[in-house]
């Protein structure tokens, strides 16, 4: 198996994805990702010179515009109904300025 990603890479990716992996989970995740990336090799083996990419199966997608008229949407109460924490009609989060965990 080729080492596409190191354990250090995996720690960096986890941080970027905001997934707090425990130290004990890093080796297995590294092995899993390397095994999967190995399987992606066929993608790199074609001569794709001059081939246009298809990012979406419906090629001629365009923005859909509508008249700017008021429609039905969530009430504040509905929008907050699934919030893990709320206060005074807002989502409640830990302080983002100072005093945080390192």
């Amino acid at each position: 198996m080729t080492e596409h990603v190191t354990e250090k890479d995996v720690r960096d990716i986890a941080e970027y994805c905001r997934i707090g992996l425990a130290d004990s989970e890093i080796p297995q995740m590294t092995a899993d990702l390397n095994a999967i990336i190995d399987e992606l090799a066929p993608i790199t083996e074609y001569d794709l010179t001059g081939v246009e990419p298809t990012f979406h199966p419906i090629g001629d997608l365009s923005n859909v515009m509508r008249e700017d008229v008021e429609g039905q949407s969530f009430t504040q109460e509905e929008a907050l109904s699934n919030a893990p924490a709320q206060q005074d009609g807002s989502f409640l989060i830990p302080s983002i300025l100072g005093g945080g965990e390192a």
Binding site: A83, I93, P94, G99, G100
Partner: peptide, 24 residues
């Protein structure tokens, strides 16, 4: 994001800490 909806691991002092623990 553990803020608008979905699982939230409580008791974190930073938002980043809450994100990482909740998503993990």
């Amino acid at each position: 994001d553990s803020v608008r909806y979905g699982f939230c691991d409580p008791g974190h002092k930073s938002l980043a800490g809450q994100y990482e623990a909740s998503r993990a």
